[in-house]
């Protein structure tokens, strides 16, 4: 959350945002599944100016062995920003922000991934932010969910995430970088779309109760829209066409 810059107007006189969007519009999102060769599952996501790559390895034996759980798989989630992903070069390696994001993202997936199927193993989820434009933790978790599906890891549901915030006094959906820097609040949220359960939730800024609830509902709606896109991307990836000759069955 940046400071307030009275010089920047985030909404024009018609209520349009600096990128032309309305208050409740999502940025354009593109999803690609199974893009990496070495990973067990992977997904690439573009969300506005965000470029995010997620990969999953596992289930695999736990290293170091003393971290193994005899009843279920252990999840490991690592959110990492590439040095060139932001305007001022970010020094490589985990910083406190990345560590916190990794922790809450892992928690979001903990009950969704059916870890009880794989005792004494671990599942590693890696997300690299190649280009950042606010909302990276939401983009990362959304991509991670697709990568987990691509890896064939059983889950109770996909996980979809989206953020809402407040800019120039108005609650708005899906803030971009400038809006996040100069806006008054940021609220990222992730859900299990089938049940509406909220799995990740944070907020910073100053909001009245009404604004808080408005923001919450807006982020929820955004996440639901994102989950529809995830579903479509997964279904569209495999065309069940017929090759050349007649039908054949195994």
């Amino acid at each position: 959350m940046g400071g307030h810059n009275p010089g920047i107007k985030l909404l024009d006189k018609d209520g349009k945002r600096i990128d032309g969007r309305g208050l409740y519009d999502l940025r354009p999102i593109k999803m690609e599944i199974g893009v990496l060769k070495k990973a067990d599952g992977s997904a690439y996501l573009e969300w506005g100016g965000n470029k995010v790559m997620a990969a999953v390895y596992g289930p695999k034996p736990v290293m170091p062995r003393h971290l193994a759980n005899p009843y279920k798989a252990v999840l490991m989630y690592r959110y990492n920003m590439a040095p060139f992903s932001v305007d001022d070069r970010k020094r490589p390696g985990p910083d406190r922000r990345s560590i916190e994001i990794s922790k809450i993202s892992r928690d979001a997936l903990e009950r969704i991934v059916m870890t009880e199927y794989f005792p004494n193993t671990m599942i590693e989820i890696f997300v690299e932010i190649l280009q950042a434009d606010a909302g990276t933790r939401c983009a990362a978790l959304t991509a991670a969910s697709l990568a987990l599906a691509d890896a064939g890891i059983p889950m109770r549901d996909l996980v979809a995430a989206c953020a809402a915030g407040k800019i120039d006094g108005k609650v708005a959906l899906d803030l971009k970088k400038e809006e996040d820097n100069y806006g008054e609040s940021d609220m990222p949220l992730a859900i299990s779309p089938r049940t509406g359960d909220i799995l990740l939730f944070q907020m910073d800024g100053l909001l009245t109760k009404e604004e808080y609830l408005e923001s919450l509902h807006l982020a929820l709606e955004g996440a639901k829209k994102v989950s529809e896109m995830q579903k479509k991307a997964l279904k569209d990836k495999y065309k069940i066409e017929t090759l050349g000759g007649e039908d054949d069955k195994v």
């Binding site: 990496l36 990973a39 992977s42 990492n80 490589p92 390696g93 890696f126 690299e128």
Partner: peptide
């Protein structure tokens, strides 16, 4: 010049310092 062999790229890359 710096290089990151991030774990995402290979089952043999581990997180940590270079």
């Amino acid at each position: 010049t710096n290089a990151e062999l991030v774990p995402l790229a290979s089952p043999n890359f581990e997180p940590g310092p270079p």
